[in-house]
Amino acid sequence: METTLTSAHDGVRSHLLFDRSSALDIAAFVVDGTDLSPGSAIPSDGDPRIDRALAGFFFTCGPDHIRHPEPVEGQDGRRYPLHGSLAGTPVVRTEMSADATRCEALTVVDLACGGKATVERRWHVSEGGQCVVLEDRVTNIGASAFAPMMMYHMNIGGRLLGQETGVVSPSLESGSLEWHFGEGESAHLCTPAHAEGGWSEVALGPLPGLGRRRLIVRFRVDTLPFLQMWRCQRGGANVISIEPASHRLAKRGELAASGELSLIEPGQSRGYALGFAVS
């Protein structure tokens, strides 16, 4: 089932097509008739949950793990799945406002470690329709503590980019870089997010395939302190992604040893927030 949220600002109309079968992630983000999503122009890691999610504009890693599979601590033979347990989990319930500017959902997630969590999600259009805002609250409803990890992928089809397209953010050492960063067919970067007033910002543009507009992303740095980006131009794949993340690019064992896998006890919650706009 699908739900559409509509926004308009400065004459630019946009539609978000949500996927209720996967935590109310965004299957399509259409601006003046153009979908920013990469669609089929993605690589496959062999996990159908992630192949489906990656083809859309927005999907969520977590709430128990992000990035590639790793062993579950203290449980021989069990592994955290690719990008965590949330992707491909249907929502329990949704509610859309009468004016189609707010959508809320509840998802119950079975964690790889044997625990259970809820993700209470609220999408809404900001006052004046200037941006789309996401607020998530992850709550431990299991019997034991777990370490929440979250990363949000905003995937943009490379067909929309041009030679003049770049990434601009105070989080970057030089303040900007070309979109085709790194070497080879695929590359990652992950850097501490620079905060102003508790939020960090990154922009991708101009986008020739979107009327030379820019995609601007803002995210709350207290629980998403890292800006990660990824691109892949391999075979038929052509995608770039902006990925606010809760943890730096490192193995779970290293993060645990340095005290970066903080726990939430049963009944405790942790909140995350971001916003994005095309201008």
Results as ranks from 00 to 15, higher is better:
Leu86Asp: 03
Arg67Met: 14
Val30Ile: 14
His68Lys: 12
Val31Asp: 01
Ser40Asn: 05
Asp25Trp: 08
Met1Gln: 09
Pro81Phe: 02
Ala55Val: 05
Ser40Gln: 07
His9Pro: 00
Gly84Asp: 07
Asp64Ala: 12
Asp25Ala: 15
Thr6Ser: 12
Ser37Cys: 04
Ser14Glu: 14
Ser14Pro: 00
Phe57His: 14
Glu70Cys: 09
Thr4Gln: 06
Arg13Pro: 00
Gly11Thr: 01
Thr6His: 05
Ala27Cys: 04
Glu70Asp: 12
Cys61Arg: 01
Thr4Cys: 11
Glu70Trp: 11
Val72Ala: 15
Arg78Asp: 02
Gln75Thr: 10
His65Met: 04
Gln75Tyr: 03
Ala55Trp: 04
Pro48Thr: 04
Ser7Val: 10
Thr34Val: 15
Asp19Val: 12
Asp47Glu: 08
Asp76Ile: 13
Val12Arg: 13
Asp10Leu: 13
Gly39Ser: 07
Pro48Gly: 01
Gly39Glu: 13
Phe59Asn: 09
Phe29Lys: 05
Ile42Ala: 02
Arg67Ile: 10
Ser85Thr: 02
His83Val: 08
Arg67Ala: 15
Leu5Ile: 13
Gln75Ala: 12
Ala27Met: 07
Val30Lys: 09
Arg20Thr: 15
Arg52Ile: 04
Gly39Met: 14
Ser85Tyr: 10
Phe59Trp: 13
Arg13Gln: 13
Gly62Leu: 02
Val31Gln: 06
Ala27Glu: 05
Ala53Thr: 02
Phe57Tyr: 14
Ala23Ser: 12
Asp10Lys: 15
Ser85Asn: 04
Phe59Pro: 14
Arg13Thr: 14
Ala27Gln: 15
Pro43Gly: 08
Pro69Asp: 07
Ser7Arg: 14
Glu70Ile: 02
His9Met: 01
Leu5Thr: 06
Val31Glu: 00
Gly62Asp: 03
Phe29Asn: 03
Val30Gly: 02
Phe29Trp: 15
Arg49Trp: 01
Arg52His: 07
Pro43Arg: 14
Asp32Gly: 06
Asp10Ala: 14
His65Gly: 10
Arg49Cys: 03
Cys61Asn: 03
Ser44Phe: 05
Ser40Tyr: 01
Thr34Phe: 11
Glu70Arg: 12
Leu17Gly: 06
Ala55Phe: 05
Asp51Thr: 09
